[in-house]
Computed example of a mutant assay.
Amino acid sequence: MNVQEIKSLIRKGQVGRYQVGDNLYLRISSSKTASWTFRYKINTKRKELTIAKFGDEPLGLPLVKAKAVAASYKALVRDGIDPKIQKSRDLLSDLKTVDQLAESWLKDCRERLKYPNIPERVYRKDIAPHIGELPISEITPLDIKKIIRTIKESGRPTISNDALVYCKQLFNEAIKIDLISSNPALPFNTKDAGGKEYSRDRVLSLEEITLTFKVMRNNQDCFVRQNYLAFQLLLCLGCRKGELLAAKWSEFDFKNQVWNMPKERSKTGISITYPLHDQLIAALEELKVLSVGSEFIFPNRRKSKRFPHISMDTWNAALANLFKKECLDIAHFTIHDLRRTCRTLLAEIGTAPHVAERCLNHKLPKIMAVYDRHDYFEERKEAHQKLVQYLASCF
């Protein structure tokens, strides 16, 4: 079959598979597009491998070059090598820089992890700036040491530990596809990174809460109004940071005063309906104005393609700035400590333990979870109302 015959078949839209040469076929689809395929038999199994589209390079492949590719595949089959596997190897061997390797590794993370955004965020922010553009084979333990030490010195020991784990996974991936023979992150452990991690027990007192919100109000040049209202919601609802910052207005029912948080964004995979006190409704109405028509409560304040809402680090950075400027003269706390504080305050005002746990959307203990499917909405509504009233003077 020559080029003119092939073009004639395509023009006529004659759907089917046509033999062009030894093991080389032309497949024509109903949309009048054609592609080259290589059919072969290896280990008693018949297989087919798509080579490329028919046409001129770089988007397609002309007849002469398609025959050359088919001939090379035929040679592999004679040597007992599966062309499909070899093609996959060739694609992986094209990975040169750490950034290219990371794209392959992060793709795997997206397929197997529930929260793939976590390793992706750590890689983009803390690993890539140091080694992303370097050749994979040139990365040394000294590069890894610099990464984990820089993160630790920035006051983020947990992230330093995470970065070390992700570096080990990343370069293990390179070993698996035969790009390197040893892992430059392997000599290090948590002692070299952020150190042993302990469960936090920081809880803010009423005095500290009052002072914190006063400082936030007095430093609106570095702690904007949206952040102030966000911290108020986090403390009163006890929700997780990631659940709130990605919330959409469509999830809120102002008439019935509830927030229907979907399970897709819940760490536990359980949806929950948060009751909203009048004071929180007022805060949300103000945020509605500040969001200037966005579908998100906290829209991105910069032109970024990564997130349509503010990033995971926005509130952390704002709080860290208050401590850095020595505006906040209390023991250091994190955003997640507000969740622990909420749970402690719920206990202080007399909320039953099982109700308080559901207020935070925690899973109940195993036996209770199996037999107790009650949502405790009315009980949670009463608890949240008491908590907001208890904290009213702090805001």
Rank of each mutant, 00 (worst) to 15 (best):
Phe298Gly: 00
Tyr228His: 10
Gly195Cys: 09
Lys214Asn: 06
Leu170Asn: 11
Ile297Lys: 01
Thr212Gln: 01
Ala282Phe: 02
Thr210Asn: 14
Gly269Thr: 01
Glu285Trp: 02
Ala230Ile: 03
Leu234Ile: 06
Asp253Gly: 10
Asn218Gln: 14
Asp162Lys: 03
Leu276Arg: 05
Lys191Trp: 01
Thr268Ser: 10
Leu164Tyr: 05
Val165Lys: 10
Glu207Cys: 07
Ile297Gln: 00
Gln169Cys: 09
Glu251His: 06
Thr190Lys: 07
Tyr228Ala: 00
Asn183Cys: 12
Leu245Pro: 02
Val215Ser: 02
Gly195Val: 10
Asp192Ala: 08
Leu179Thr: 01
Ser294Ala: 13
Ile180Val: 11
Leu211Thr: 05
Leu204Phe: 05
Ala185Asn: 03
Leu170Pro: 13
Glu243Gly: 14
His277Lys: 10
Asp201Trp: 05
Ala282Ile: 09
Ser182Thr: 11
Pro275His: 05
Ala282Thr: 10
Asn260Leu: 06
Pro275Leu: 07
Lys288Asn: 13
Pro184Cys: 12
Lys214Arg: 11
Asp278Ile: 06
Leu284Tyr: 06
Phe296Glu: 10
Glu285Gln: 15
Asn172His: 11
Lys214Trp: 01
Arg202Asp: 06
Phe171Pro: 02
Asp278Cys: 11
His277Asn: 15
Leu170Ala: 14
His277Tyr: 08
Ile270Thr: 03
Ser181Cys: 03
Asp253Leu: 08
Leu284Ala: 07
Leu284Lys: 09
Lys214Phe: 04
Cys236Pro: 06
Ser271Gly: 14
Met216Lys: 01
Asn172Ile: 00
Asn219Tyr: 04
Thr190Phe: 14
Thr190Gln: 09
Gln169Ala: 14
Leu287Cys: 09
Pro275Gly: 13
Ile175Trp: 04
Asp162His: 11
Glu251Gly: 00
Thr273Pro: 05
Ala282Gly: 10
Gln226Ser: 14
